[in-house]
Computed example of a mutant assay.
Amino acid sequence: MATSDQLLVVIDPVARHGDGEAVRIAKDVLSAGATTKVCLPDGPEEFARALARRGSRRPVVIGDDRALLRAVSLLHRRRELAGCALSLVPVGVGDGSVSLARALGVPMGAVAAARAVLDGSERRLDLLVDDSDGVVLGALRIPPTGGADGHGAHGAGGAGGAGGAGGSGSAGEAGPQHQPHWLRTCQSLVRTLAARPARGTTPSAPGPARLRIEVDGRTLVDLDQPVTAVSITTGDGGGGARVEVRPASVGASAAPMEAVARTITVSGADFRYRADAVVGGPVRTRTWVVREGAWGLTLPG
């Protein structure tokens, strides 16, 4: 195999409760091919402790996009990303929960993903880091779209929290490992139901926003030109992020403005954004900087 044959397998609680069969299969494949230590954290604090105490073992996360984002965020804040290659076996509830993993090239399916962990190789990927130390692995959207859940931007990135990605809980939930299982289950159900719109209603789409968008010190769009959408997508090691801005138009759709930049600053009226699986804001200004090849992910060769 590509790196250490000693694995620390961290199984996210959402994966355990959502698809226990896929978790079992992945664990069996990994255990057959390497020496494994399996951790079953019940909350973000235990997840963080498991990673911090990994020693020379290579960390493997079994979970969804939020679990991956939580792991990257924790290692980034500990300044340990450079020397740690992560592996992921995507197990979530619904295809949308592992869309980031799919976009990054991680195989779907417990067996294929576990074999990639054993036989694949590390690929260095770019990382977007904002001015409050939050991270973006894949894409950022303004306004937040794709099932915004209301978690803060750093519910995923805090030292005890979960790219992007609360996963099994947000940073605001104090000491979930001390709560009984039935209470955590009820809290999760309440959060899920509260995030759903009432039956028969459709969430209203946000109107155009007035934002100043600067790329590498150059103004791409200023406040006098309303925009309907902004997307920032990380690269695959090239050191630049792709920025696309869709201006508001009258009649025919206006062509999007595009740029590739290493530093992107967005400012204006209070705005929210979706960084991978996590919604952040409101903020009046935020700067993202590309860190070239900042993190490693094991992918098929």
Rank of each mutant, 00 (worst) to 15 (best):
L7F: 06
L8H: 04
D12Q: 14
D12R: 14
V29L: 03
V29R: 01
E46D: 03
R49S: 12
A52Q: 03
S56P: 03
S56D: 13
I62E: 13
R66L: 15
A71V: 05
V72N: 00
S73V: 04
L74Q: 12
R77L: 08
L81F: 00
L86R: 02
V89I: 14
V93P: 06
G94N: 03
D95E: 09
V98W: 10
S99R: 11
A101V: 07
A110S: 12
V111D: 05
A114Y: 13
A116Y: 15
V136R: 01
I142S: 00
I142N: 02
T145K: 00
T145Q: 06
A153M: 13
A156W: 01
G166K: 06
S170Y: 09
E173R: 12
A174D: 02
P176C: 04
T185Q: 06
S188N: 02
L193V: 13
R199L: 10
P206R: 08
P206G: 07
A209K: 07
E214Q: 10
L220Y: 05
V221I: 14
V221K: 01
V221C: 15
D222F: 12
A229Y: 11
T234I: 13
D236V: 07
G237M: 06
A241Y: 10
V243L: 14
V250I: 11
G251R: 00
S253I: 07
A259I: 07
G281F: 01
T285R: 03
W288L: 13
V289N: 05
V290E: 04
G293P: 06
G293I: 05
A294H: 04
L297P: 02
